[in-house]
Simulated scan of single mutants.
Amino acid sequence: MSEDESAERPTLEAITEWDRGIGWFAQPDEDAMRGSHALATESGVWVIDPLDAEGLDDRLSELGEVTGVAVVHDRHTRDAEAIANRHDVAVYVPEWMDLTREKLQSEPEPLGDELPGTTYEIRRLIDTDEWEEAILVDEAGETLVVVETLGTLPGFCASDDDIGLHPTLDETPDGLADYQPERILVGHGESIYEGGAAELDAALDSD
C-alpha cells in the first residue's frame, strides 16, 4: 500500500473488544455512526460489512488470520474489496443477494447457510428489489448480527429503548422476534454486548 493510500484512511479510534471479536467506527463523529465488525472464529477472522481505517490490519492480526470479508446488506459494500485485497482473501455475499453483488466491482464468492468453518448461520431477513439483508446467528455463542434493520441511534429507538427498528420499516421482519441473544451487533450505533434478549424484546414490543 502506498503512503498516499494510507493517508486517505481515517485513523482507527473507536474500538470495542469482546471475547470473540471487535467492533469499530472508522468515523465515530458521523451522524450515521456506521459500525463494522470482525468475528474471531475457529476458521479464522471474518470481517463483516467493514469500513477501512488506518491501524485496522494490526487489530485484525491480533485476532488471527483473516479468512474472508462478508457483505450482508446491499448498502454496506463499503470498503470490503479494499480490505479483502490487502489480506488476499475473497469477498463473500449470500448467494441470493443479487443487488449486493451488482454493487461490487468483482464477482464475490457465494455464501450458503453458514459462514464456512464457523458456528454462524446465515439467514435471510429482507429480500426486495430495494433492500437485501441477511443476519448472522450464532446460537451457541448467543450472538446476533443485524447490520441495518436494528440500530441503537436515536432515530431507531422509541421511548427509552436502547435498540430499535430502522425508521423506514413499517413492521418487524418475520422471525426477528424469535431470537434470544446475549449480544446484538449492529451496523449503526453502539452494539449491545449483554442483555440483548431483553433489549430486543422491549424494542419489538414498542414497535
Rank of each mutant, 00 (worst) to 15 (best):
D4P: 02
E5W: 03
E5G: 08
E5R: 04
S6P: 00
P10D: 10
T11K: 00
L12T: 03
I15G: 13
T16H: 12
T16E: 07
E17I: 05
W18T: 08
W18S: 07
W24Q: 03
F25I: 04
A26D: 13
Q27G: 05
Q27H: 13
D29Y: 14
M33P: 00
R34H: 15
V45C: 14
V47K: 01
I48H: 07
I48K: 04
P50D: 15
P50I: 06
E54Y: 12
G55R: 10
D57Y: 09
R59P: 05
S61V: 12
E62S: 05
E62D: 09
G68K: 13
A70V: 09
V72L: 13
H73G: 07
D74E: 11
T77C: 15
R78V: 05
D79N: 15
E81A: 03
A82P: 01
A82V: 05
I83K: 12
A84E: 00
R86S: 11
D98F: 11
T100Q: 00
K103Y: 11
E107D: 12
P110S: 11
L111M: 07
G112W: 03
D113M: 13
D113W: 11
E114Y: 06
T119F: 08
T119K: 15
R123I: 02
R123Y: 01
R124E: 14
I126G: 01
I126C: 10
T128K: 06
D129C: 03
E130W: 06
E133Q: 13
E133H: 05
I135G: 11
L136Q: 01
D138H: 03
D138M: 08
E142R: 04
T143H: 01
T143F: 05
L144N: 00
V146G: 10
L150I: 12
G151H: 02
T152M: 00
L153G: 05
P154V: 06
F156A: 08
D160P: 04
D161A: 08
H166S: 14
L169R: 15
D170A: 11
L176I: 08
Q180W: 03
P181E: 02
P181M: 06
E182A: 10
R183I: 08
I184E: 00
I184Y: 01
V186T: 04
H188F: 03
E190V: 02
I192E: 08
G195D: 15
L200K: 05
D201G: 11
A203C: 07
